[in-house]
């Protein structure tokens, strides 16, 4: 009984820590905003930071199942859904900043951007593909789906992450080192998917 309560409390503390860590980049931006730390071009800076954090959280989400299957560390699995939803939240804020603050709701200009500029086209497509994944991450929706179709749908996160990297790569002027870093990370995470899975009791499973 006592152990169960301690365990529950430990879980709540762990859960709160994850929540705070996921919100930290956003809170930091707010703090920098209040102290004038958003550089001379705050809109550009916030837009870039939100986009990069969306990509980082996508990568973190993708790293969780290889950690469980390859390295046998399965504890983060219980937070995968939540971290994935944070990736979506940062992508939403990134898009909202672009539409509302950067473009000032200038729809003709936004539509022209989407049609004419490959990095915007790809970024917008990546966002649209992310929406069904976010919606089906809601437990009630997920329970209504067959596990197999849910898993197949959620494999789309790999191409989405790759599109995020391409979006980033096409945007920078000359120094491609940062987007290339994320390209390598996403490639490794994809490769990790095809690694042989570690099984708890392979011999017995074989009979």
């Amino acid at each position: 009984m006592a152990a169960a309560i301690t365990g529950g409390r430990a879980h709540r503390i762990e859960s709160a820590c994850i929540w705070i860590l996921c919100a930290a980049p956003l809170l930091l931006l707010v703090l920098q905003g209040l102290t004038g730390g958003l550089t001379a071009n705050p809109i550009e800076f916030v837009l870039r930071e939100l986009g990069v954090w969306a990509l980082r959280f996508l990568c973190i989400t993708l790293a969780i199942s290889p950690l469980a299957q390859g390295a046998g560390w399965s504890r983060p699995m219980r937070y995968r859904r939540r971290i994935g939803l944070w990736a979506f939240a940062y992508a939403c804020l990134h898009l909202l900043t672009y539409v509302a603050v950067d473009q000032e709701f200038d729809w003709p200009s936004i539509l022209k951007d989407i049609a004419k500029r490959p990095y915007i086209t790809i970024g917008m497509a990546a966002f649209l593909l992310l929406v069904p994944l976010a919606v089906t991450s809601i437990n009630r929706v997920r329970r209504k789906m067959r596990p197999r179709s849910w898993r197949r749908l959620h494999r789309a996160v790999y191409p989405i992450a790759a599109m995020g990297v391409v979006h980033y790569y096409l945007l920078v002027k000359a120094d491609h080192r940062d987007p290339l870093f994320y390209a390598v990370v996403v490639a490794l995470l994809l490769a990790a998917r095809f690694m042989p899975k570690r099984r708890a009791r392979p011999a017995r499973a074989q009979g």
Binding site: A40, N41, I43, E44, E104, S109, K112, D113, K116, R117, Y119, L170, L171
Partner: peptide, 19 residues
Amino acid sequence: VDHPRWSQAKERRIGEFFR
């Protein structure tokens, strides 16, 4: 003449909110 990756029609003056 747009830059191939963004429009040059407007600009953001540093210190101003609107383009």
